[in-house]
């Protein structure tokens, strides 16, 4: 019994290590293509990158905005309740803005994008793999990584931070709506104390997270898509796994980045 359990755990661990190795290899290969590709007549594909940026960023705007707005409102209500008890309601704008910018906007936006863009990428590449389209690209002499993977990573690295900045703005507005509409605080005062207390470091932390999350989502979904074998069912599995793994890795990376900023500052 114990043997089976340990065997099972060992198997899982080995599987995860293999997965991590695959991710690392894909990351290295992509970086290499990005940096030295242009010198070997393998340019970065600007057009498809822009097309994918629209898909990754613009198409997720409404959902990201909605979630940020609601989160801002929830944060305002939650902190108002706690802060009133200790008589420090004046700190509310600061608390809302800091949690949104440093933590919630990057995290929630990344999770939305993992669900929308990451799953779409895994499904697209998975379908291409099982229908031999990847093979067709290869025998045509086109490199899968520079043709498919690099644009998908680049697009997300650019659009996720933009989305996060947008979510910051909407989230703070959500807090403002609650402050003015429900708690009867002044709008000017609210914005004033928001801007007074926010530092570059808060913004930097949010953007570093957005960058790291973008790399995670793009790499995981491309890797899951490209290693798909079989048929439609496996494409579905690749899609699900890419979302689950992305989210787990995003949260782990979130802790890591937060800890670094904490230790440093």
């Amino acid at each position: 019994m114990i043997k089976i359990f340990i065997g099972g755990v060992g198997h899982k661990v080995l599987g995860l290590l293999a997965e991590a190795g695959g991710l690392w290899q894909l990351a290295r290969a992509s970086l290499k293509r990005l940096l030295v590709g242009p010198f070997h007549s393998d340019p970065v594909r600007i057009r498809s990158t822009i097309f994918l940026m629209v898909k990754a960023g613009y198409d997720s705007l409404p959902l990201a905005a909605l979630i940020a707005l609601l989160t801002g409102m929830i944060m305002a209500l939650q902190s108002a309740q706690q802060l009133t008890e200790v008589g420090a309601i004046g700190l509310m704008p600061n608390l809302v803005a800091a949690s949104i910018i440093r933590e919630l906007a990057p995290l929630l936006t990344a999770i939305i994008v993992a669900g929308r863009y990451g799953s779409a990428v895994a499904a697209e590449l998975g379908t291409m793999k099982v229908s031999q389209e990847i093979d067709a690209l290869t025998v045509m002499g086109l490199d899968t990584i520079s043709f498919l993977v690099v644009p998908r990573i680049l697009a997300l690295i650019i659009s996720l931070p933009c989305l996060v900045l947008f979510a910051d703005f909407v989230g703070i507005s959500g807090g403002l709506i609650i402050a003015v509409g429900v708690l009867n605080l002044g709008a000017n005062g609210y914005m004033q104390s928001t801007f007074d207390t926010l530092g570059m470091e808060d913004l930097a932390m949010g953007l570093v997270k957005a960058f790291v999350f973008a790399v995670i989502i793009a790499l995981v979904s491309c890797q899951q898509g490209l290693k798909t074998r079989g048929g439609a069912e496996q494409v579905g599995q690749a899609t699900t796994i890419s979302v689950v793994h992305s989210i787990v890795l995003i949260i782990a990376a979130d802790l890591f980045v937060t800890a670094i900023f904490y230790l440093k500052g």
């Binding site: 070997h40 697209e124 291409m128 229908s131 031999q132 389209e133 093979d135 067709a136 025998v139 002499g141």
Partner: peptide, 24 residues
Amino acid sequence: DRLSLKALRCRMGVAFQGGALFGS
């Protein structure tokens, strides 16, 4: 190496069993 393989592949054409056209 990569480059001569690429050049070689430009001189080869492959029609796959299932077509393998780019669906998009």
